[in-house]
């Protein structure tokens, strides 16, 4: 699969790769893919917005996400690796398709739930964890982008809370329907082992078993992501005992 953003290999100046570089390469590849997918989602969202301000917001978000992808790619180059991307990889493709179903229904609220509540929870939590352990500017970039992504969530939260205030039961049912679609896929991505075969993003074998070498683990990234998701749902006002059941029913 051809990367969606080009990586200028001539800028790679590292004389020798650190032993952990191949691990960061795959971590970055997942992050870049996620950012590019987010950019595509926001671009699609702009196409169903009626309000010119909303159109502008969505396009601005798309641009910001592309910027994040470029910053991650640059961090890869700094450590001497080419971090690729593949938005057509099996799980990412499924996530994109779920978002496009909302687009097809011109469901602006559904789009926000998928992108801002579900995908961003995953991004914020996992970037923050990586930011704590990754060395130097790589870690700083992950941490900064995690903080920026969190601002996206704040932006959407007010809209979604207002929507829930109109009809809480209807809203919660919608979130649950989307949860079953999107979070089931995310849960498979976050599983400790990739049981459905290669994810089509890692450049070689699955990176998950090697994460301990950089003080990470798949279980930790999953745990942090699900915790962030539950807290975000709490902030929306969905009863905690309800969301606990949703998360408990996800595949592992």
């Amino acid at each position: 699969m051809e990367p969606l953003i080009a990586v200028n290999c001539s800028t790679i100046e590292c004389a020798s790769l650190s032993p952990s570089a191949p691990i960061w390469q795959d971590v970055l590849a997942q992050a870049i893919t996620g950012e590019l997918l987010a950019a595509m989602n926001y671009t699609s969202l702009s196409e169903i917005c009626d309000d010119p301000e909303e159109v502008a917001d969505a396009l601005e978000h798309a641009q910001i996400e592309r910027g994040h992808a470029a910053r991650f790619a640059a961090e890869g180059r700094k450590i001497g690796v080419e971090a690729s991307n593949n938005v057509d990889a099996r799980h990412w493709k499924a996530l994109r398709e779920a978002f496009l179903r909302c687009i097809a229904e011109r469901d602006f609220i559904g789009c926000l739930i998928v992108q801002e509540i579900m995908l961003e929870s995953f991004a914020v939590a996992s970037y923050a964890r990586v930011g704590k352990v990754a060395p130097g500017s790589l870690g700083q970039t992950f941490a900064r982008i995690a903080a920026e992504e969190e601002e996206h969530v704040d932006h959407a939260m007010a809209i979604l809370r207002a929507e829930r205030a109109l009809d809480a039961q209807r809203f919660d049912n919608k979130v649950h329907r989307l949860h079953l679609d999107v979070m089931t896929t995310l849960a498979k991505m976050l599983a400790k082992e990739c049981k459905d075969g290669h994810c089509e993003v890692c450049h070689g074998n699955c990176v998950k078993p090697s994460l301990f070498e950089v003080s990470l683990s798949a279980a930790e990234l999953r745990g942090a992501s699900l915790q962030q998701y539950l807290k975000t749902l709490d902030m929306l006002g969905i009863p905690g005992e309800v969301t606990l059941g949703w998360v408990a029913q996800l595949p592992v």
């Binding site: 745990g223 915790q227 539950l230 709490d234 905690g240 005992e241 969301t243 606990l244 592992v252």
Partner: peptide, 21 residues
């Protein structure tokens, strides 16, 4: 049911919350 190792991985991340009425 979740395997024991998965429970030990997941439970510590669950924020406090109501379980039942």
């Amino acid at each position: 049911p979740l395997p024991d190792d998965e429970i030990k991985d997941i439970l510590p991340w669950i924020p406090p919350r109501a379980v039942c009425h």
